[in-house]
Design a protein around this nucleic acid. Structure first.
Lengths: 203, 203
DNA sequence: TAAAAAATTGAATATAAATTCATTAATTGA
DNA sequence: TCAATTAATGAATTTATATTCAATTTTTTA
């Protein structure tokens, strides 16, 4: 035999994979999944289209991985924001604000992800992700109800409503098009108040 | 000359157009826009694909018309539900419940419409539609604030949040998959409570 | 440096769905 | 019924991407 992967080569391969993921992430965060065609990903990553298929079985698989990684990162941050010993209403407010601010700062994938059109395979993954986001809020609600800080309510429904509320407020018709910082902060505050009142967590 | 459209023919043409719209509506409400390919529409309508292009310049135009008609109908019903002289919180509750019940009853297009993936042209129309739904709620909120029944809030943001909240609760991860009537009514009630509390309209 | 193996390329192919248009069928008025 | 005109068909074309693979380049070891 006269070829064996050297550590150097190994590294370059891993590098390629990373480049593909990064390129996809960049394209998606700029123009959504729609703009992330294989050829575009290849161009941005500086490789050929064929290469992509040495690392990912299909475009759907690539998307699912990018989606998963971005969401996991976001969930981690969100979970930290949700931690603490303040009353549930306050914690909810902090968490919502955290998400919304990050989304407004963009290019951040999470919110594009939870709202965007894709093919069925990726869609399944997207639903799972929305559920994950919901679970962060659900945990706050359950604890708040246990402590008697929040009125009784269906935590699954309320959590879904919260995710839906800020998603729509962010990517919907009134979403961030050409807004200045002040407007953005006002939007953040409005969404936060809405969600806190919604779960009965107003002081 | 020896051909001129007779009233009979005129009627048949109008009939074809209607059949195309109905077929599209049926397919979309069953399987979303994804399932409504031109060939499928043609089959369901019982005509050839070519025919469709005698009535609609493109698939996007067809979709936009179907979307618009369905949403207008829904808006009309919603506006009626929003009318009345009860306190704003109560009116909001009625309106939300009306929408959610109708969506759960399906096949009703409106909610599939406001949540589904499509190409850019149709997407613009969809955004307009979501805005229309929001405006129904905004009107309630503005009036409620004027009368001092609701706390001050950004009515655009709150309206968007409401639309987002029930949309997500309906089509999101906890949405209606295999739910019995009782579960559905519980979901309706949960969403309603959430929205009423959210705008500060609790009694 | 040369041969073997693997990595990389990108043009060619596959796929899926929208749109067209030459052809055929149906309708109208004389 | 016939000629003129329009309606209707659906196979062929177009379009837009994803995916493959024969050919090329690079890397490794002897």
């Amino acid at each position: 035999m006269s070829y064996r992967r050297s550590p150097l080569m190994e590294e370059r391969l891993a590098n390629n994979r990373e480049r593909i993921l990064l390129a996809t992430r960049k394209l998606v965060s700029e123009g959504g999944f729609r703009e992330a065609q294989i050829s575009a990903v290849a161009t941005v990553a500086g490789i050929s289209t064929g290469m992509i298929y040495r690392y990912f079985p299909s475009k759907a698989d690539l998307f699912v991985e990018v989606l998963g990684a971005a969401v996991d990162q976001e969930i981690k941050i969100l979970t930290q924001a949700a931690a603490g010993h303040e009353p549930a209403g306050e914690r909810l407010g902090k968490t919502v604000t955290c998400f919304v601010r990050r989304a407004l700062k963009g290019p951040n994938l999470a919110y594009a992800f939870i709202a965007e059109p894709v093919d069925p395979e990726v869609d399944t993954a997207r639903l799972r992700c929305r559920k994950k986001f919901g679970d962060v809020f659900k945990a706050i609600l359950v604890e708040g109800m246990q402590k008697g800080e929040l009125p009784e309510q269906d935590p699954d429904a309320s959590a879904a409503c919260i995710v839906g509320a800020f998603t729509e407020a962010l990517v919907g018709p009134i979403g961030p098009t050409t807004r200045n910082t002040q407007d953005k902060e006002r939007l953040v505050a409005s969404i936060q108040s809405f969600c806190i009142r919604a779960v009965g967590g107003a002081p």
